[in-house]
Simulated assay, not measured.
Amino acid sequence: MIEIPSDLNPGLVPLAFLLGTWQGAGVAALDKFGGPDAEACNFGQEVTFSHDGRDFLEFSSRTWRLDADGKRLDPLETEHGYWRIKDRQLEVVMVRDQGVAEVWYGELAEGKPQIDLATDAVARTAVSPPYTGGKRLYGYVNGDLMWVGEKATPDVPLQAYMSAHLKKAVDPRLGAPPSPEGWGRVADIKDLPDDGIAFFR
């Protein structure tokens, strides 16, 4: 069941399904995009959507590599952003630790909690990796948050590069706190699809 906080800005009610902290694992096809450290891998992720009563959701995401046993390795990337919606039309401003700032536009599907986003503008610092734009698809499926991201560079056409299956985190005030290792150990990585698009079929 989707809970709507009493202090949520009325305009954000269509995005209430995103609120909270989500944790899980996914598949990254980073090897398609080159770079000295690029390799396909499983990754862990924690995503938080929060609000303070104003007309936007605050978004944060951090990801890290996982080994074959689901143990946390080195960080992958961190993102921060702000999501707004009006008449099912979304605008998102996002900054990534790789030296990239993006403006995304998209739409909330009619009658179901699914969001399609595509970049409208990309700004990069001199040290950021090659990147020209992307697309993302988010969906709320049976109480879980699933997403798939596509990416393009000057040399690689738009194609899927990351997808994840995230579950709502338990509020520590309502149950046992996370283990010292946090969510670095995920038991069902082998069951994740190679291609996150399958989540939405």
Score class of each variant (00 low, 15 high):
100 V>L: 14
147 W>G: 00
132 T>S: 09
160 A>R: 10
87 D>W: 03
136 R>F: 02
175 G>F: 02
171 D>I: 04
125 T>H: 09
148 V>P: 00
181 E>F: 06
106 G>N: 08
114 Q>F: 09
153 T>F: 08
136 R>C: 03
96 R>L: 13
91 E>F: 00
168 K>P: 03
117 L>Y: 05
134 G>L: 01
97 D>S: 15
80 H>K: 11
106 G>Y: 06
118 A>H: 11
128 S>E: 06
140 Y>R: 06
153 T>D: 06
127 V>N: 12
83 W>S: 01
132 T>W: 03
128 S>F: 06
93 V>N: 12
142 N>M: 09
155 D>R: 14
162 M>C: 10
91 E>K: 11
159 Q>K: 07
167 K>L: 06
135 K>Y: 02
114 Q>Y: 01
78 T>D: 10
181 E>G: 15
127 V>S: 13
148 V>L: 09
85 I>L: 12
98 Q>I: 08
92 V>F: 14
115 I>L: 12
127 V>P: 01
105 Y>P: 00
123 A>T: 13
148 V>E: 05
138 Y>T: 11
129 P>T: 03
114 Q>N: 03
137 L>S: 05
100 V>R: 12
79 E>L: 15
111 G>S: 01
104 W>M: 01
173 R>K: 14
152 A>I: 03
167 K>G: 08
135 K>Q: 13
85 I>F: 04
164 A>T: 00
83 W>Y: 15
132 T>C: 08
119 T>I: 02
143 G>R: 08
132 T>K: 05
131 Y>F: 15
139 G>I: 01
86 K>E: 11
122 V>Y: 03
172 P>Y: 10
140 Y>V: 01
158 L>V: 05
147 W>V: 04
124 R>T: 13
163 S>F: 01
114 Q>K: 14
145 L>D: 07
155 D>W: 04
86 K>H: 05
103 V>C: 10
181 E>S: 13
83 W>K: 03
132 T>L: 09
168 K>W: 04
131 Y>K: 09
130 P>I: 05
128 S>P: 05
172 P>G: 08
117 L>Q: 07
77 E>P: 04
147 W>Q: 07
77 E>W: 07
130 P>T: 06
139 G>Y: 00
128 S>W: 07
125 T>R: 09
129 P>S: 06
116 D>I: 02
155 D>F: 08
163 S>Y: 00
151 K>F: 10
171 D>S: 14
169 A>V: 07
91 E>M: 04
82 Y>P: 02
158 L>K: 05
153 T>M: 13
159 Q>S: 08
159 Q>T: 09
154 P>A: 11
94 M>D: 03
116 D>S: 09
92 V>M: 12
179 S>T: 14
146 M>D: 04
131 Y>D: 10
101 A>S: 14
147 W>A: 04
100 V>I: 15
97 D>Q: 11
82 Y>L: 13
154 P>T: 09
109 A>C: 09
144 D>I: 05
159 Q>L: 01
136 R>Y: 02
